[in-house]
Amino acid sequence: MANILRRAGVDFPEPFRRFLEGDLDSWLRVEEFREAGTLVVKAEVPGIDPDNDVDITLVGNQLQISVRHEEKSEHRGKEGYRTEFRYGTFARTVTLPAPVNQEDVRASYTDGILEVRIPVPEEPAAGARKIPVSRGSGATPGSAV
């Protein structure tokens, strides 16, 4: 399916593309919203060490977030010993509305929530503008025929 999507040259939203490719297990769910000229991206990733388990990269207007999670539990009892491991890497790429300066991007981790703040330039208001229509064979107004 991935080859068909690539050959078709169609750009599907990431969640849909991952669904079609069967790659939902490694997908990091995020919340995106704008707040006073800043794009805020939040991800719930409890139990990680942000210094060692998080990589945030800015490539053009693509913000790439990768989180490694490793969990180990042990049970020792009269009947024996049991241990469980769960680990994996979860990633997400967020397309920014415009290229931004890497120095302005800020990330924080509080109470299991990874938050990335990206200042984005305000988009100009989409105002209406009347387009003049010329007469004749494509002559512009004021030009000699």
Rank of each mutant, 00 (worst) to 15 (best):
88 G>T: 13
81 Y>F: 13
107 A>R: 15
130 K>I: 07
112 G>L: 09
78 K>E: 04
94 V>L: 06
100 V>L: 01
103 E>L: 09
120 V>I: 15
89 T>N: 10
88 G>R: 08
98 A>G: 01
118 I>E: 00
73 S>D: 12
74 E>I: 12
113 I>M: 14
77 G>P: 00
97 P>L: 07
108 S>N: 13
122 E>W: 00
107 A>H: 14
96 L>A: 06
89 T>R: 15
73 S>I: 15
83 T>F: 02
73 S>A: 14
96 L>H: 07
119 P>H: 04
86 R>E: 10
103 E>A: 12
104 D>H: 08
95 T>W: 03
83 T>Y: 03
105 V>G: 01
92 R>M: 07
90 F>M: 13
76 R>H: 12
93 T>G: 04
86 R>F: 04
102 Q>M: 02
78 K>W: 02
88 G>H: 09
73 S>K: 15
77 G>Y: 06
104 D>I: 01
92 R>T: 07
111 D>W: 04
119 P>T: 09
117 R>Y: 02
106 R>A: 05
75 H>I: 15
88 G>E: 07
91 A>E: 15
118 I>M: 03
81 Y>R: 14
121 P>D: 10
74 E>L: 11
123 E>N: 02
123 E>T: 09
74 E>F: 10
115 E>D: 01
82 R>S: 06
128 A>N: 08
88 G>D: 08
124 P>R: 12
102 Q>Y: 02
94 V>Q: 06
95 T>K: 13
130 K>P: 00
125 A>S: 06
111 D>K: 13
130 K>Q: 08
105 V>A: 06
128 A>I: 04
100 V>S: 03
130 K>V: 12
108 S>Q: 10
97 P>S: 11
118 I>K: 03
122 E>I: 07
87 Y>F: 12
108 S>L: 01
110 T>H: 10
93 T>D: 05
122 E>Y: 02
74 E>Q: 11
108 S>T: 11
92 R>H: 12
94 V>A: 04
121 P>I: 04
127 G>L: 11
101 N>D: 15
97 P>W: 07
117 R>H: 01
115 E>H: 04
129 R>N: 03
93 T>H: 09
109 Y>V: 05
98 A>D: 11
86 R>T: 07
83 T>G: 01
75 H>A: 12
76 R>Y: 09
94 V>P: 00
83 T>V: 11
105 V>Y: 01
87 Y>S: 14
116 V>S: 02
88 G>F: 10
130 K>T: 11
90 F>Y: 14
100 V>P: 00
127 G>F: 03
76 R>D: 09
109 Y>F: 15
114 L>W: 07
84 E>Y: 12
109 Y>T: 11
96 L>N: 05
82 R>E: 05
82 R>D: 03
130 K>S: 07
98 A>K: 13
83 T>E: 15
124 P>D: 09
123 E>H: 04
117 R>C: 03
90 F>C: 02
74 E>D: 14
119 P>E: 03
106 R>Y: 00
126 A>M: 07
98 A>Y: 07
109 Y>Q: 11
